[in-house]
């Protein structure tokens, strides 16, 4: 039997070309992770998340949080509360995980009380406001950044949102901790027409 028939060689060449094509197809922008495009922004900025938007309105630091008229829950560190609003476009948004990261590489996650642990979206055409509360270490707040990381089952090209919460150095962090409110009442999520 002839090992190198013309068709065999052709198929081989085709595979090599296909490999090259997929290299060409990878996006030109440099992403932090190959399959994640990160939209960066600051507090108050309306950020695109596919055809929906996320706006972080304010950040608050508190020594305790209150949820659903329960007893206040205290901490050895502090609680950082982030209030956001989302406007849902027509595209599917899936779900996302919210994290707070610092310059030291620490990752904080929302407290379990609020059940939702990411930005919550309403039906298409509606806006929803929500609040996420994170327990944090007061000595590790530099470069505090809020991230909405899209949860995915298959690794495909997706988009994340990253919001700079404006804590550039220790002085600002200390100030935030010093002026922390004694209590943060977690507001109820509100849905309205966008």
């Amino acid at each position: 039997m002839k090992l190198y028939r013309t068709s065999t060689v052709l198929v081989g060449v085709l595979f090599v070309l296909l490999g090259g094509l997929t290299r060409l197809a990878t996006p030109e922008k440099v992403y932090d992770s190959e399959n994640r495009e990160i939209v960066h922004g600051t507090i108050g900025e309306t950020l695109k998340y596919r055809d929906s938007t996320i706006t972080v309105h304010r950040m608050k630091v508190a020594k305790a949080y209150v949820y659903n008229d329960d007893k206040p829950v205290e901490t050895n560190g502090a609680f950082v509360a982030v209030e956001y609003e989302t406007v849902r476009g027509t595209e599917e948004v899936g779900s996302n995980d919210a994290t707070l990261t610092t310059d030291d590489g620490t990752e904080y996650r929302p407290v379990a009380a609020t059940i939702v642990n990411g930005a919550d979206f309403a039906e298409p055409g509606f806006a929803r406001s929500g609040s996420l509360v994170f327990e944090v270490n007061t000595a590790d707040l530099n470069g505090l950044t809020l991230n909405f990381v899209t949860v995915q089952f298959w690794t495909v090209l997706t988009q994340d949102v990253s919001v700079d919460l404006g804590v550039p150095d220790e002085k600002v962090a200390q100030q935030l901790v010093d002026t922390a409110a004694p209590e943060y009442v977690i507001p109820k999520s509100v849905t309205r027409v966008a």
Binding site: N76, G77, T106, R109, P110, E135, N137
Partner: peptide, 8 residues
């Protein structure tokens, strides 16, 4: 289901 923070 308390979320434990590193460093505290």
């Amino acid at each position: 289901n308390w979320v434990f923070v590193y460093g505290l």
